[in-house]
Nucleic acid binder design. Structure first.
Lengths: 147, 147
DNA sequence: GATCTATCGTTGCAATTGCAACGATGTCAA
DNA sequence: TTGACATCGTTGCAATTGCAACGATAGATC
């Protein structure tokens, strides 16, 4: 016998919570806008910065680079994103939102904000500490290998 | 333009954190014990309760029921788990750890505990509030559909 | 400049996945 | 009892995924 307690085990609880939250949120855009989770994540990412490479998203969004590559290809085909060779380093592909992509993001932003509001309400007094904890876990070195 | 901020957006940050944490932790059991994430989750789940159905795990661990079914079949083939028809309701399959399964869990528990310890240390003062927040998000009704 | 090594994004391919059936079982009302 | 309907776990199948190449480019060393 051992004293392991699943109820407090971070990787497990985090995975359950994350999956549930992402699934719930995906209901708001999946069928309505016809984009997948990875595609949403890329669009959201691009809305925050001007020029982003596949690698940037791969590392920051914790998405397989092949997944990013294929999702970006789909988004380009749908007219939401442009892919251009980076002038400084021609190995890099610069991803950027088109006008259509920005319009999509503008339409999704209020939905995301509303969702966020509800989550914050659920957190109540713990909200600030929860976000602080998440940042601590995200930005601390930990033992994450970076490729 | 909109005011959406990805840096605080819960579904996104939670997904990134969860993926990173689960991947890091998986390094400790994946190659060593030859089990997948889903398989680990099922074993951990079974270690906490005597008799569990596929459906129980599907709902509580937020895993597709087909994923649970297949992972359970692999675990049975590997000798870690038994599958028996529930006597009260013969539609249900009761999953339970074998001695070999319990031995495996006893071997993994200290590893999990050590990982948990390190995560708690990273959280520092925010630890209690973070766990409380996680519970709030997990157990509140939210808008989760249950199938 | 030539060579060696590292990095980037894409792609082939096998493995995994999600979803929609399906058969088996249970429930409930007529 | 029967019939209609719901639930459980499995499985077929198409789609997605992860991983390991690969070509192209960059950087470093000589």
């Amino acid at each position: 016998m051992n004293d392991f307690d699943l109820g407090d085990f971070l990787p497990y609880q985090l995975a359950v919570l994350s999956e549930r939250v992402s699934r719930d949120f995906a209901q708001h855009y999946r069928s309505r806008f016809g984009i997948s989770r990875a595609e949403w994540r890329i669009i959201a990412h691009l809305s925050q910065a001007n020029e982003v490479s596949v690698r940037d998203i791969h590392l920051r969004a914790e998405l397989e680079k092949s997944k990013v590559s294929r999702a970006a290809a789909r988004l380009e085909a749908a007219g939401y994103v442009t892919k251009t060779a980076n002038a400084q380093d021609r190995r890099l592909v610069s991803l950027a939102l088109t006008d259509k992509g920005r319009a999509l993001m503008d339409e999704m932003a209020p939905i995301a904000d509303a969702f966020q509001q509800r989550a914050m309400a659920q957190l109540g007094d713990d909200a600030a500490a929860f976000l602080a904890g998440m940042r601590a876990l995200l930005h601390d070195p930990g033992e994450t290998r970076d490729d």
